[in-house]
Design a protein around this nucleic acid. Structure first.
Length: 704
DNA sequence: ACAATTTTTGTTTTT
DNA sequence: CAAAAATTGT
């Protein structure tokens, strides 16, 4: 799964980009051309050349996972010298590194106290509240949230928008929501993701001395996946960098672009802004075979706006890329499972070498079934998110309030959780007070309790709540597990949880119980728990989005049908279509050796069956580069009668991985066990002889 | 005010 | 189909 770790082998182009120190560099790198390798090596090379100067370089990646991998590979490349202070390295995402800067320097821009970071779910809750309060159609919250986020990531303030759009039929209501949102965030002492970047920019702009300090610290700046950099992130880089920057990206691999409005071509902007920038290309793919390169290239070349790249490789032409068309999704899934089994039994590929990709998560169901039937181990990646479950969110709300009592979103969430008998009526009074005075809900409650106008019984309830919050927030410098215990002893909320929720919470404790509360809270917002598949011997199932940055020797892309790839909701504009094509391209170029593409005519989406047509993108593939195979319908009665028994109860004497001894071939490892009760066959991998398939009755195997 | 029932909705996803 | 939202009934 990880890219080739043959660290010493760098291509001439990579070498040139590493050694070039005369000015800014834009590296345009194709899929699998060693872009990340280039970055980690440049880091290591500079570091080893002059530790004094280059021990605090800034290196940013798009996701935590990518950043972690970058950090690991840098550590590997500079060697495991204990004097290397890896923890102090400025390697991470834009957001985490900005957060780090802000925590150090927040006083300079007037952030007092401990802010909380709102994730997109918190943002949505707040926006729904605002829409509701302004008597606007609440169901629009998602669209509103993404537009506000777009404004913020483009560094457009409401004022600027007012003056720019004054005379157009621009949505004035949207701007009012934006203003309200910003106001509420300020009162609540919360920052959203975009704020982390824009506040840092403001910090630098208003405090030249601080900016200069960080210009010193960041003696060189390295940026991975540069094509996905937002305007704000780019401004951040522009403030910090002069000649000491290298950015690397591939415009063919942007997959989060068209969701916002039109966005400028960031690659072109870099070349324009850094006028002495040098463009370098990495076009030698170390990953894909010639055939895969040819097929994927023919698809991506149909995109309208892109930098032309001509990828080439030293590798063999390899297996032909195959496209299979089935009559039903079950047949498709069965074929994939059977094919994986065959690949595995032949012994050239382990299960962990194989990935199955799809456009939407619900496609995994059928495939999972088929894999279970073939007894193939697998893992579905990216479908469970522990921190987004309801019960966990409740707990996190409490923890956040311990940290920052002004957190309105959290206070609204748990004010009646467990039920404290505070009525809607009272809540409205509190909201009005907070709005009128421009203060947080917590402060509004305190104020109302001190004044007259509320009945004593209501006041008592509110005072109890306030007392609880005060008690909880008394001591902030505690660890997460202490904090959770505190919440447990002072509220009845944990008692009411079911087993699953308790399991989730103990998992959180297990994972980060020792972290200081504040650190845990920013971690929760800034990092998603990505299930790591490294080292596990199972097939990986995931969406095309999730596979970004990975590679597998064997890749199956399923559901190559119009409506799925491209997705039916993204076929209106040519930008949307281009993005779907890039997504498809991304999936294809994950494959090192073998690429299968499959589709099915009959597919069930939600409740109804649909007749699908093969993906329109397949037309872009020249007929001679690809093997086209159409599986005809198996007569229904034969098909349904042939396979209905789950046939699970057959017990096999050997498990995969167990070691055996053969009279002739010596010691081997069982890879698989299958067949009928009285005719069990095994596949054994003998290190000296190779993979053998044996009939158990005649083989005389001995368990060791 | 809260539980039970009916209606609606439905991509992907990072921070 | 299944979860979330909206509506109705007690």
């Amino acid at each position: 799964m990880s890219e080739n770790l043959s660290l010493d082998k760098l291509s001439e182009q990579q070498e040139a980009a590493i050694e070039y120190m005369e000015g800014p560099v834009l590296v345009l790198a194709g899929a699998g051309c060693g872009k990340t390798q280039l970055i980690t090596h440049k880091y290591a090379r500079l570091y080893n050349k002059d530790r004094e100067k280059y021990s605090t370089m800034l290196a940013v990646a798009l996701t935590n996972k990518a950043a972690d991998e970058m950090r690991d590979r840098i550590a590997y490349a500079i060697g495991s010298d204990p004097s290397n202070n890896l923890k102090g390295m400025w390697v991470g995402t834009f957001y985490s590194q900005c957060n780090r800067i802000l925590l150090k320097e927040k006083a300079a821009i007037g952030i007092t106290g401990d802010y909380v970071i709102y994730d997109s779910e918190d943002q949505c809750r707040l926006i729904r509240h605002i829409l509701n309060d302004m008597k606007l159609y609440e169901a629009l919250y998602k669209g509103v949230a993404s537009k506000i986020s777009y404004f913020k990531s483009s560094l457009l303030t409401p004022d600027e928008l007012f003056s720019t759009y004054n005379n157009f039929d621009f949505d004035e209501k949207l701007l009012k929501v934006y203003v309200r949102y910003q106001d509420e965030m300020r009162r609540t002492n919360a920052l959203d993701y975009d704020d982390l970047i824009s506040y840092t920019i403001r910090l630098f702009e208003e405090n030249p001395d601080i900016l200069n300090k960080y210009r010193e610290i960041f003696s060189y700046i390295l940026v991975d996946e540069f094509q996905d950099t937002s305007y704000a992130q780019y401004q951040f880089l522009k403030l910090l960098a002069t000649n000491n920057i290298l950015v690397a990206g591939d415009d063919d691999q942007t997959i989060y672009k068209s969701r916002d409005f039109e966005s400028e071509n960031i690659l072109a902007k870099f070349e324009a802004d850094f006028d002495n920038a040098r463009l370098m290309r990495l076009e030698q793919s170390f990953r894909c075979t010639q055939n895969i390169l040819k097929v994927s290239g023919s698809v991506i070349s149909k995109n309208t706006y892109r930098k032309q790249k001509i990828l080439w490789t030293d590798k063999q032409s390899g297996e032909k890329v195959c496209h299979y068309w089935f009559m039903a999704e079950e047949d498709e899934a069965k074929y994939i499972a059977k094919n994986i089994k065959d690949l595995y039994l032949k012994g050239n590929y382990a299960y962990s070498d194989i990935a199955i990709l799809y456009r939407v998560n619900l496609q995994s169901r059928v495939i999972e079934e088929a894999l279970k039937n073939e007894r193939i181990p697998f893992k579905v990646i990216g479908s469970s998110m522990i921190y987004h479950k309801r019960e966990t969110k409740d707990l996190i709300s409490y923890l956040r309030l311990m940290w920052n009592k002004d957190d309105n979103v959290s206070i609204r969430w748990i004010i009646n959780q467990p039920n404290r008998g505070i009525t809607v009526n009272t809540l409205n009074k509190i909201e009005n007070e907070a709005k009128k005075e421009g203060i947080s809900i917590y402060k509004a409650i305190v104020k109302l309790c001190a004044a007259k106008g509320l009945s004593t019984s209501v006041k008592e309830k509110l005072n109890n709540f306030i007392a609880l919050l005060d008690l909880l927030s008394e001591n902030k410098s505690i660890t997460l597990s202490e904090a959770i215990k505190l919440v447990g002893t002072h509220t009845s909320y944990i008692e009411a949880l079911d087993e699953n929720a308790l399991n989730d919470i103990s998992e959180i404790m297990f994972r980060s119980g020792n972290l200081p509360l504040g650190e845990f809270l920013s971690d929760v917002s800034l990092t998603t728990t990505n299930d790591d598949v490294r080292g596990m011997s199972c097939v990986s199932l995931m969406t095309l989005y999730n596979v970004k940055g990975m590679e597998f020797p064997v890749v199956f892309i399923s559901g190559l049908e119009d409506g799925l790839i491209p997705y039916f909701k993204a076929t209106e504009t040519s930008e949307e279509l281009d993005e779907e094509r890039r997504l498809f391209y991304l999936g294809m170029t994950r494959a090192r050796d073998i690429l299968f593409m499959t589709g099915a005519k009959k597919r069930r989406l939600y409740a109804k069956f649909q007749n699908q047509e093969p993906s329109r993108f397949l037309k872009d593939i020249p007929k001679d580069c690809c093997l086209w195979i159409e599986k005809n319908a198996i007569p229904a009665n034969v098909a349904s009668k042939a396979q209905p028994q789950p046939q699970q109860p057959v017990e096999f004497p050997y498990n995969t991985g167990c070691r055996v001894k053969h009279p002739k071939w010596g010691v081997g490892v069982i890879r698989d066990c299958y067949g009928e009760k009285n005719d069990i066959k095994v596949t054994v991998n003998f290190p000296n002889v190779g993979v053998k398939r044996l009939a158990l009755k005649y083989a005389n195997l001995e368990k060791i």
